[in-house]
Design a protein around this nucleic acid. Structure first.
Lengths: 217, 217
DNA sequence: ACAATCAATCTTGTATACAAGATTTTTCTT
DNA sequence: AAGAAAAATCTTGTATACAAGATTGATTGT
């Protein structure tokens, strides 16, 4: 009926979308009944999810959806910031016209998404696509995938954070600037821009208070 | 008798030390007899090893120690290079005297290790310790651990590569320079140094030919 | 009424029997 | 002897029964 991969994707989706809030209990027997599969292959899936920090396994007690770890978020942002500075400089030196148009196309779709309903989800998806495309064009898809493996906390953080009014336009404008700097090979300005784009207002107390039920203490 | 963690560490050690060459078969039943444990918990261990690329699992065929993936090595080097430029700059701005002495101490031990027998293993261990300590001092241990999770290929590559005569002294001198630049806050020179330190002569044909039996095609 | 203890019932962890695919060996046919 | 087909024997994958710890609830004694 379901393959292990399908089950894994379903569970990941439900966790990333915050449909299952942090703290939600995932019982092996309940899942095994739901998917009509024995506990053994399901345990494989849960093990893998726990290694990627989607869930926490408490031996002989149970499995719960992990709480968002803000330290992990900050560390990933630092990592991406350092990496993407380098990647943008690489691209400045070698970006083909065809690839530039591909990036611009994504930006156009992202601009359209700002106005739509459920704007945030569509926008975020295109945001990831934009960054991912830069990794791919720079020959660094391997590193994009590597980061994705430890990205649960950051992805959920961003979904909550994105609800701020005006945030979408700001992000979009910065993407636009990235392209501009790359085209003009303005490497000096790239560092500062990437830094601001990724690290802007981490850890605001306002955020922590508003979503405290999602966050690891 | 053995816990799963102990077994995992043993297997990791045997793979990283190249005691088990790439291609070596790891049979579940053989391991289960060796460790006097049923297949179920052993499968957990093997699954985890495969997620970290220590082994490749071929369904219904068998498990083998993975071949060294040079692309993965290059990607990890790029990642570390980008990250450590940033980390060294951070440290330049805030390094405490006590911490500086800790780094110098590691360097002294590393210098001593150059002369000893089995120099390479001891030297490599201290090399990792030096870099790890910089991550820790910069508050980035999280990222060090993250990289370690995808480091099998790089660690084995380095072990082979390090056999080159004169390599040890060169690495040590560059470590020394890193400290110097940090103390003098000479951020301009750091980029170039880190780049050379990590990326030096990747992918030389000489290397590929000499160790072709270890390398993924 | 309250507290402590014991028992029932959850949870996940382990062992084992069986299923299914891949490989090797054997056997039979030409 | 050579080649093809079939069977035996590997491998890992799955289902299930049982073990062991953790929690919950009931029961019993004061």
């Amino acid at each position: 009926m379901y393959t292990k991969e399908q089950i894994m994707d379903l569970l990941k989706k439900d966790i990333l979308s915050l449909k299952w809030k942090p703290g939600t209990i995932l019982s092996e027997t309940a899942l095994s009944e739901r998917f009509q599969l024995s506990r053994t292959p399901l345990r494989d899936v849960l093990k893998q999810l726990s290694l990627a920090s989607y869930i926490d396994i408490y031996p002989k007690k149970g499995n719960i959806v992990s709480y968002i770890d803000l330290d992990s978020v900050e560390q990933i942002i630092y990592l991406r910031s350092a990496l993407e500075k380098e990647i943008l400089k690489d691209l400045s030196a070698q970006l083909a016209l065809k690839d530039l148009h591909e990036l611009k196309d994504i930006l156009d779709r992202q601009k359209a998404a700002i106005q739509g309903e459920d704007a945030a989800d569509e926008f975020l998806c295109l945001d990831d696509l934009f960054h991912q495309m830069m990794y791919i064009l720079a020959g660094r898809e391997f590193l994009w995938d590597l980061i994705q493996q430890s990205n649960v906390h950051y992805l959920r953080y961003r979904k909550l954070h994105m609800q701020k009014i005006g945030k979408l336009e700001e992000i979009w404008r910065e993407h636009q600037l990235m392209l501009e700097y790359m085209v003009n090979q303005d490497t000096a300005k790239i560092d500062e821009l990437v830094h601001h784009h990724l690290r802007d207002d981490m850890n605001s107390l306002e955020f922590i208070n508003k979503f405290s039920e999602y966050i690891k203490k």
